[in-house]
Design a binder for these strands. Structure first.
Lengths: 329, 329
DNA sequence: TTGTAGGCGTTATCAT
DNA sequence: ATGATAACGCCTACAA
């Protein structure tokens, strides 16, 4: 394997000079820059990132913490896009990434996780799917031993940024659109996981809408479960004009129930997953660019690792109408 | 961060002694083992894997090469399970893992990829979704610079193992079951991607079956595309008794077509993805344990990295009948 | 059985 | 502007 030493020799300069050129340090003459770069080219030198990580504490490797809930493989689509977006961006930014799952840290304390991450020379982490109940990861964040970006949770401190869409407004918008299109008054709202950060925001959005439009609303907790949404719809759907769901999966459950009950009610979902296409009906939903969000998070993490302060970042969303033929390709 | 040096000091021994204990070297007295382990406990020492990787070439980091085809997000489920299975097992085996996507290496030569992997101190790779056309990765494998495990491709050499189910037999079995249950004679077989390793095996399985049962068969290339399967079914389905598909996704396309044509034909798929449940019909399919396969691959990779020779590994499969209520949970 | 010392490929701090 | 040289944390002959 060709190392920086070989490059130095080949270019006729010192190792440290090569390093300076590679890392764009100031105080290097144009002439030696050219020499070094030429040597790099000729030898096909690629710096060893492991050595770099060991040597400099600030090089910084990144860990992705993904919450894979085994029950709903359907949303693997979302996690996959998160991972893909993050890793691609990381490669672009020259950051090393390892992917980890929540399940690996079951029954571990924040300290144990911290030590593990440190043993991997991790300095920055991105957390996907954090729930309010996960005290361990919350502690990890508040300890601030790592630079941290959290997706879909309102946690910001000196070393922590949050990235998410405006769920309150998005829920408001998609429900409003559906309700106006179908001229509804009585809303059945099937919310997400209890005490979820996102769940609460979306409920607020619905409350805003109910107030603004003078609607009535029944809220039931669907726990992001298709089955629960189905049962709730079976039970309450008949006397409502519209079923608004906090996720596409639940929207599918609701729609299946309505079909079985043989009544029509407009349904809207949230997330814009491809799976929606397979239910065979049209539905309004909020489309999130998961890859883009994740890439954005990686950019933000790099900024944090370069000394920026944590901040709250809101990304855009769009309303979509998905149907079978949009998907098939 | 507590290092091996601290442990050595705390235990009153030399650094190298600690290292020997940690790596289970022979010729260490029981007494010092206890001393060292006690120190490790008390200091909560976790060895730094980055330093270990840099120091010893044989520690070995692993790269996962995942083929994410943007068209069929539906099968993210499969890739996610692959990744999850591999990373979990790697953690268990104390191997470091990085995840990479085919797309990152577009327009790169095998040499460039090799250099990149070496720059990451990668010594072993697992490849998911390799196609016959991917000459670059094939060269990477045949160069044998890395220990390598390939999923679903028949490539074995000194440093390369392959892991897959017996696709030929699986295709035979699932089709036979469906055909017997429905007493069919004329088969429409919608195959997968042309020149795919797996595709060819499955076609052989169908040919075996046709011979054994005295059937007639029309084979059409569906390219793993739901839309193509749909079109093929529209065109040829009417005059056949059964539609056998080389993937669940295509089975869904075929079934949607049949529903639209308002005729009934039994359909069977392949893979056992959860998505099957959403189509609202029952279907026979081959269930693969993707997590298990991937974990197996990681184990095999470790063996290769420890000096074993490459070999061909066949993993089990099961036949399943999936329907809506099986999935919803 | 235990300890010493050199090396893995970089980065960073000094001199020069 | 450039070059020695000491870390970084660990592994591993080799010496004791």
């Amino acid at each position: 394997m060709v190392s920086i030493k070989d490059v130095a020799r080949h270019a006729g300069v010192a190792i440290s000079t090569v390093s300076k050129v590679l890392n764009h340090y100031p105080n290097v003459s144009e002439e030696t820059k050219v020499k070094v770069n030429k040597a790099v080219e000729e030898l096909n030198f690629v710096p060893n990132s492991v050595a770099a990580a060991l040597s400099s504490k600030q090089a910084g490797r990144v860990a992705l913490l993904v919450n894979l809930s085994s029950k709903t493989q359907a949303i693997d689509e979302i996690n996959m896009q998160y991972i893909h977006g993050a890793i691609n961006k990381a490669m672009e930014l020259n950051l090393d990434v390892i992917t980890l799952f929540f399940s690996m840290f079951k029954n571990r304390t924040a300290e144990e996780i911290t030590r593990y991450l440190q043993s991997q020379s991790i300095t920055g982490i991105i957390i996907y799917g954090l729930s309010k109940e996960n005290k361990v990861l919350q502690k990890l964040i508040s300890d601030q031993r790592f630079k941290c970006v959290v997706i879909d949770a309102p946690i910001v401190n000196e070393n922590t940024s949050s990235v998410w869409i405006d769920h309150r407004k998005a829920q408001y918008d998609v429900a409003k659109k559906t309700i106006i299109e179908n001229n509804c008054k009585r809303v059945l709202y099937i919310s997400g996981k209890k005490n979820g950060y996102v769940t609460d925001e979306r409920i607020k959005g619905m409350e805003d809408l109910v107030r603004d439009m003078g609607l009535t609303m029944l809220i039931r907790n669907g726990d992001f479960s298709e089955l629960q949404a189905r049962n709730i719809t079976m039970r309450y759907g008949k006397n409502k004009d519209v079923v608004v769901c906090a996720s596409d999966l639940m929207a599918i459950g609701a729609m299946k129930a309505l079909i079985e009950m043989n009544i029509f009610r407009p349904v809207c979902g949230f997330d814009g997953i491809i799976l929606m296409g397979y239910v065979g009906k049209q539905m309004n939903t909020v489309h999130q660019d998961f890859e883009g969000i994740s890439a954005k998070a990686m950019e933000e993490l790099q900024k944090l690792m370069n000394g920026d302060k944590g901040k709250n970042i809101i990304t855009p969303y769009t309303l979509e109408r998905m149907k079978y033929m949009d998907i098939i390709c």
